[in-house]
Design a protein around this nucleic acid. Structure first.
Lengths: 337, 337
DNA sequence: TTCGCTGGCGCAAACGTTTGTTCCCTCCTA
DNA sequence: TAGGAGGGAACAAACGTTTGCGCCAGCGAA
């Protein structure tokens, strides 16, 4: 039953029912009695305004999009959950999409989402900017918030980690522990966040007077196979680094697998410092020292930023961007020399 | 730009544009020339039919819902990804919701999804059936496919594991290895799947002449805290079981954490057999012996079942249900006595 | 010339809302 | 008693599609 049938049944106008059900009864001075009658009947017959009709009329759907690179990664799934919860409180639905760390899929999904009349979009990009991506975003008028990995050249409110600082934090910790040769396992070479983390590492190295070839970098992507290949390159080299930083949450699994295969043990053969705290980080042997991101806080900030724009469309572009700080979670995978 | 503006621009009727853009040009005998003209213009101005308008007219949105109990669990996130991929190929969007293993949230989200004019719904329930849930589902005319944990009393096509057999598989493996006292860490006591797995275990125990108190069961839910409490109960008992089966993917983390806290080591102090293969299962110390489910196959089957109903609405209720088999993934967390 | 047929396309209704405007009625005041 | 004020609710347009039906032109046949 829809609201016009309900109206007919009650002998009132559709508009009256609509106003009551969408909470605008007072604004349009519907009498208390009528309000009650309508509400009771709506309750009884389980009538809710069809979001499609409402969306069509209002010009939006009461739904936002969330596009993440890998829902399988606890980092993003935790964020997704937090974001959905925030928006549920506002009565806004969240449509979640997964680009599987693939830029083509990402662009495809993005254009699909942009054409879907959503109220807004939270985008956690794969990380590489293509012209298509840039154009798709700037051509659209949909409010967008960028999350985690930023996109240079695209100005939208964003939520991210201070990656440079996080990289510096990691490097400083390893250097303080007495390590000399560092290895970084990155995800995608094109991804900004990884690049910034590496820059942070390099900065500390430079400050402390190390040579540039005291840092070796490997890794071509975020998938399992690519992580394995990168880890292999780092660990089986003749001049194996004595400490490895995994720049992504997935990478660490690759390092652990290869390390086991090569019969190396942590931290006696090499130290391991992993970005992203995972449910199992503390349960590994040895428990992993990690760089933790304030996941929930970041997710909520992203939701909050988007909400501001939704509530007040004029404020587009006036949003500040939020930068969060990583923290070191010290366990036992880094040796003190 | 919408299709009526495009029509005006081209000097043709909206209906013509609509027919071309929705691929019904032949059916309505639009000339090749007109088709080309429309397509080119649509391409040029980036015009796609508004899904809202279309949805309103058609009575559906081209979108299905997917409700899972915990998107943070790799089991469900892997499924979610597979399902989304399948439907993307059909041009159908997927709206993902997470009930956070909470039945109230589940019911709330379910009613929301049901009122949202979706084409269909894939429901991976928390596992407990409430009257509200039952009523909500049977009152609605939306095609539904049940996934993973079934709901007795609700007849809908479903995809699930042969849980009884999986439980038997687990028990047999442990008994074969010479263990005598078994402990089960379950998730929710009300969940059907866990119950069936336990029944499978009990069956094997009975067949081989064990007493009923050779099996001890603990666990009150799927959250981290509940897992910890359950594991604590099992592991710190004076007559600690010599083998533990974790019935859920989350549970095993609880067992590992408590085990470490108590200074126990696996498999010398107790053996561990965990349901659900995880990315890190093989990387634990010791590598975990697991019961693996064919996640992707199950997800695709669920998508296929729903697709049949979407394509042919008359076939509602004529769907068979699919049952999959678990397999044992032998590693080193089960001792041979 | 008239008729029927067919290819090609336009007309207009319908989907279910929301919301600016109008209308009616009652009550109060002058 | 007339005029105004204001509360309460109905009217109707608009949102962007899809689709059954009808219209028109052209062509071949009678």
């Amino acid at each position: 039953m829809n609201i016009s049938e309900l109206a007919q049944h009650l002998g009132v106008a559709v508009s009256t029912v609509s106003r009551v059900l969408s909470g605008n009864a007072e604004k349009y001075r519907i009498s208390e009695q009528t309000v009650r009658r309508v509400q009771e009947a709506a309750e009884k017959f389980q009538v809710v305004p069809d979001p499609l009709g409402a969306g069509l009329r209002r010009g939006k759907l009461g739904m936002i999009g969330l596009l993440v690179p890998d829902i399988t990664n606890p980092f993003f799934s935790t964020m997704a959950r937090a974001i959905e919860l925030r928006f549920r409180e506002t009565g806004i639905a969240v449509q979640l999409c997964d680009s599987a760390e693939d830029t083509d899929t990402e662009l495809l999904l993005l254009t699909k989402l942009l054409s879907r009349r959503l109220d807004g979009l939270i985008l956690a990009p794969v990380g590489k900017v293509s012209d298509g991506l840039k154009k798709a975003i700037s051509d659209s008028s949909m409010p967008i918030v960028l999350l985690d990995r930023l996109l240079p050249g695209i100005d939208a409110p964003s939520v991210s980690l201070d990656n440079r600082k996080a990289g510096a934090l990691a490097a400083a910790h390893l250097l303080d522990a007495g390590h000399r040769r560092l290895g970084c396992l990155r995800g995608d070479p094109g991804a900004v966040s990884d690049r910034e983390r590496i820059e942070g590492v390099q900065e500390v190295l430079r400050e402390r007077g190390f040579e540039s070839d005291d840092l070796v970098i490997a890794g071509e992507g975020y998938t399992r196979e690519e992580s394995l290949a990168g880890a292999e390159k780092l660990l089986s080299a003749s001049d194996r680094p004595d400490a490895i930083i995994s720049l992504s949450g997935q990478g660490v699994l690759g390092v652990l697998e290869v390390s086991r295969r090569l019969g190396l043990s942590i931290p006696s053969d090499f130290s391991l410092l992993a970005f992203d705290e995972q449910p199992w980080s503390a349960l590994m042997q040895p428990p992993l020292t990690t760089i933790a991101q304030p996941i929930e806080a970041m997710a909520e900030k992203a939701a909050a930023l988007l909400n501001v724009t939704l509530k007040d469309p004029k404020s587009v572009g006036q949003q500040e961007s939020a930068v969060f700080e990583a923290s070191l979670c010290e366990r036992e995978s880094v040796a003190k020399k």
